[in-house]
Amino acid sequence: MPIQQLIFWILSAATLSCALGVVLSRNPIHSVMFLVLTFFCISGHYILMNAQFIGIVNIIVYAGAIMVLFLFVIMLMNLNSDVEPQKSRLIQLAGVLSGGSLLLVLLAAFRSTNLAPLEERASDIGLISNLGQALFTKYVVPFELSSILFLSAMIGAIVIGKKDSHPHREVTSGEQLDGMDNIVKNDAPLIDPSLSNARSVTPEHEHYEAHS
């Protein structure tokens, strides 16, 4: 068996078992970790196809940014296996049935499609210069459209985040962007200017009282 094929099989087995781990583990943090591993395996597949750029971008964007945000939310909400809601048997059965029928449909579609064989020789389309050429010449309109979509999604997220803040509180940009400041401010009263004022006032006050 050539080495590429061996690596392919090992990677595929790892991808599938990690993906199963995401679904099967009870602890949400473990699920996230399995998902990160799955992304790594998929990146391995990309690199095997000589698409290094897509492989590394997959790691940067999904494993490095999106999954960190997932972890972030799960840690903040303090989710663990105890609070996982228990579903009733009926819902579980319905889930199995619908999932299984989707699998059947996919399998049937897969059997009847005539997949063109992959190129045998090493393809260079995944290298960054070729990919850039393709994106900015042949597919420039879809590329620009999708970037506008992302921009509007970003602006939408900021608008929604703004509505949530209480009107009487001073809104800083940090709050809109990550909501971290609530915790930080509550836990760090030293930052509060009113308190530091109070502290600077107190000694004078005592001084006054001592004299009177």
Binding site: Q52, F53, I56, V57, I59, I60, A63, G64, A65, V68, L127, I128
Partner: peptide
């Protein structure tokens, strides 16, 4: 590797 900088970014983000 021809994506050296991106590799560094990937490791950094991990």
């Amino acid at each position: 590797i021809n994506i050296g900088i991106l590799f560094i970014f990937g490791v950094l983000s991990l």
